[in-house]
Amino acid sequence: MSNKEFRERIREELEEIKKLGLYRKLRTVKGLNFSSNDYLALSSHPRVVKALSYSLAGATGSRLTSGNVNHEILEEEIAKFKNFPTSLIYPSGYQANLGLISSLCKKGDLILSDELNHASIIDGCRLSKADKIIYKHNDINSLYEILEKNHKNYKNIFIVTDSVFSMDGDIANLKEIKKIADEFSSVLIVDDAHATGVLGDRGRGSFEYFKIRPSDNTIVVVTFSKALGCQGGAVCCIEEVREYLINTSRAFIYSTALSPALVNAVLESLKIIKETDIVKRLKDKVEEANKILLRYKLIEERREVPIFPIILGELTMKVSEELIKNNIFCVGIRYPTVPKGKERIRVSITLNHKKEDIELLAKKMKESILKFSS
Rank of each mutant, 00 (worst) to 15 (best):
N173I: 09
H194A: 11
D191P: 00
A195Q: 04
L188T: 09
T196I: 15
D170S: 14
G169F: 02
H194S: 08
E176Y: 04
E183N: 05
T196M: 15
I171T: 06
A195E: 08
A181I: 12
D192T: 01
K179G: 01
T196Q: 11
E176W: 01
F184I: 14
L174I: 05
E183M: 05
V187C: 04
A195R: 06
I177R: 06
V190M: 06
D170Y: 13
S186C: 15
E176V: 04
K175V: 09
F184H: 07
S185C: 00
K179H: 04
G197C: 14
D192Q: 02
A195W: 09
L188F: 09
A181K: 05
T196E: 13
I171A: 09
D192P: 01
A172F: 11
V187L: 07
E176A: 07
D170H: 10
V190C: 05
S186A: 15
I189R: 01
I180N: 02
S185I: 00
H194L: 14
I171V: 12
D182W: 07
G169W: 03
A172S: 15
L188Q: 11
N173Q: 13
A181F: 09
E183P: 00
D168Q: 15
I177S: 11
A193C: 05
A172G: 12
H194D: 14
